[in-house]
Design a binder for these strands. Sequence first.
RNA 1: GGGCGUGUAGAUCAGUUGGAAGAUCGCUACCUUGGCAUGGUAGAGGCCCCGAGUUCAAAUCUCGGCACGUCCA
Length: 949
Amino acid sequence: MSLPAIDLPVFHENGFQRKKCRITGLWFWTTDSDRETCGDTFEDEYTFIGEPLIPSFPQRGKALKDAMRESFLTFFESYQHQRVEPYPVLARWRDDIHLTIASIADFQPHVTSGQSEPPANPLTISQPCIRLTDVDAVGRSGRHLTTFEMMAHHVFNRPDDGQVIYWTDQCVRYCHELFTHKLGIDGNQITYVENPWCGGGNAGNALEVIVGGLELATLVFMDLEEHPQGEIELKGDRYSTMPLQIIDTGYGLERFCWAAAGTPTIYEAIYPESVQWLKELSNFPRVLEHWPDLQLDLILSELSRLNGIMNIEIGTDAEVLQSMILEKLAERGVHLTSKQYVSITEPLSRIYAIPDHMHAISHMLGDGLVPSNAKAGYLARMLARRVLRMRDDLGLTVSLRELGVHHLECNLAGEVQKQTHDGILHILDLEETRYEEMMRKGSQVMLTMLRELSKDATIIPDEILFQLNDSHGIPPDIAITLASKLGWSHVQLRTGFNAEMAERHAKLAKQASLQESSTKRLDLDGIQSTEPLFYDDVYCVEFNSKVLKSIVLESGFHSTASHCIILESTLFYPEGGGQESDRGHLTQSGSRIEVLDVQKQGEIILHFTNGPVDEHQEISGAISWERRKQLMDHHTSVHIVGGAARILLGPHIFQAGANKSEEMARLDITHYGRLSREQLDEIEDLANRAMKEIDETQKTILSRKDADATHGFDLYQGGAPKGDVIRVLKIGEHDTQACGGTHHDYPGQIGLIRIVRSTAVQDGVERLHIVAGEAARKHLRQQEKLLSQTSDIFGIQSSELPKTADRFFKEWKEQKKRIEQLEAEIVRLRTSGGGDATSSIDGVRCVVMETDGDLKQMTTMLKELTLDSTTPTLAILASSNGGPKLMVALTENSIASERYNAVEILKVMTPHIKGGGGGKPTFAQAGGADATGLPNALKAGKLFLGLGE
RNA sequence: GGGCGUGUAGAUCAGUUGGAAGAUCGCUACCUUGGCAUGGUAGAGGCCCCGAGUUCAAAUCUCGGCACGUCCA
């Protein structure tokens, strides 16, 4: 079964009729009896360019957006919708996406699953969103953006409970009234296209609202969820109805603005000052001076119209696309040469994309994001690098900071949420420095990689281009430009290379996603949730409960435990939130078993033990207080240190992960630079002050709705919690976050917090190693021991260590050098006077000697013997220092090296020491197992050379 | 989260099949000059990131760690 038609009274009352689109085959509603297409086809061109569809919005840019947004929100407020402030663009409350991609994303998954209450119902919102999927089309298509605001009205109905606020008909009524009455759009221009929507496990009927060839809104009536036996089939998946009925609408603010402005592209409607500024900076008007007859606005308008009706496949070859577009433009009476087309669209596409990208960057950094080489931080870096590249392509001399200053002033005046202006600009500076460094290193790497390539080459091998892109951050087109500058003037990018590279990346990503994690789970059907007792009183160590289940584990299921016990209630804290589990023991009728590990599966707490207990019987348990106290010391310290770091370093400090064990705690924080010991000391000082000054921690339990409303999304430092119950831990004004761990009621009980050191986890994330309480004292003792052991070796006070170690290291280096010189001197002395070791064959000095030096010393000696080209020398050295060794060297480029081959001579000798070796014709070395054979080896060598005994 | 890459002189980087540690700039001294720019000659400067392993032999190969870079989801 598929979805039924959307046949609503509102359509009939307003004179709409249902038709089937001649092109797409979709059903649509229209008041125009002559209309045959749904409005969103290749025949439906934009009608609003030059002829605004929405009257009475004379503003442009931010003012236009503000006015349009306000008129949307007030319209719905007048119909009892509550206005909800926009959520951050970083979706901190979700662990499946990094960025807020739609207004409904604010309410997923907890509200849309029915678990949590929405902040208001019905509600209206204008949510800034970022989508990077079409990032390549931004600036080129005339309409694509990475950052946009999705205006919406949302309703969450529970029909089973009789709670229905409104559904399809009323939804369309609001939409239609907004369009026709509030905004003054001609009703004849509007089509409502029936096109079911599905995504993320949900689905529903939907209407696309098309005006003037542009999709202005989508109305989704989400009441289906994926179900294998579902009765409704949509795009290959089966769905059944769910208890919740959700109205999910999306009205594109920027598109409304475009329709109101009627500009050739959307960018001129929403970023007019920036476009103008960048045009001036890049001297764009001069481009047009070459062709005074060209009408730029007409060209751009036609291009936008074309792009609006053309569905361009990703990966379409640029040249093919260009000739296609030129042909179509000609059909429309706009005649352009290929050169004119490129001269206009290449710079303009960048001028248009830069403000869009800056908008996304400003929003992301404004929300406290730190650029990085992984996760969401990478997305910000990627955008920043795109901007810098486009800036360079345009030949602009402004810095990223200046672009940022302009954007914040012009397009975001006073609307940055969390990060300070200075913070954003500082991060932009750092990103630009990094970009420059990358480009500089990239050119060096290219020079090395291309060394083998002939200067007449026309293509750079694929492997080199792949590696330049993936490992060094040099995209193929930049690689080509750089290569041309470096002397390979004929190289060009092979057609279709970019598409191939994308395919290759997609393949790798697919392979990676196939590697599934196999976490072992127990079958716990029918067992009730365990009641946690550890929250009520964190200082309680003993409890009584009843055994629900005692399971014998298969061997290998757990590394140390043999059994798994499930209780009605427990004091044992299971591993979670980065905190390790409690340990202790369970006692039943006099016999005692040890609890070795505690885990959570769903809402059931599993005690892993070294023995069984009787099911359905009473049991008493006790946790190890020493361990619990230490874990609480560490966990509470992590919060305090995190808060201190945020106060000292800035609002971008966010917890990226944490771990608390008995020995130590780790806290990963987002920050854009490495931390010095001085900074760590400051954080440590503040943390210790806070620990002492704050009397009591406040622990509250809130519903998600209330927690979000009271504390905002910085609450979710430890990741997105599941469920509707949020435990909030507040430590004075120092730190507030959602956390399910066990914490001290009185921070002062920790005693001492030490930040041992910091390491880098990835770019943009710094790991703080923390010890607290007893562990801090243990750590201190250990450090003292290390110091005293080391200073004992030197026989000095530990305070003298750095000085002494430095002296020893320096002296060691000096002595090493001296020994080398002395050894060379010895060799000179032993060889200069002739003697037994030296003889001569036809003008070649032959030195055969046994020494007691090691490998390094022997090479030094050989150097001394053979480097002087005026005395052609053949030298054979033997040594038994560190195993038998033989070396043969010849003076290079002399009669010695012409006559003899060091490797051949060596081969005669090595069998005597039971070894092997090799080298170059002028320098060979060998080692072996039998040192007693050395004299014989030397004899064999002499014999080979014809030297008598 | 996954993939790839880099760590060698004060700086920027080479180092081929595992077999003698290199270049350029900078530094020091001397020569050239009235002085400077410049030019010439010589010299100093290396725990080849750290730790294991393989090997007769490791800057080079393998594994682990540390530091850094980069692409993708």
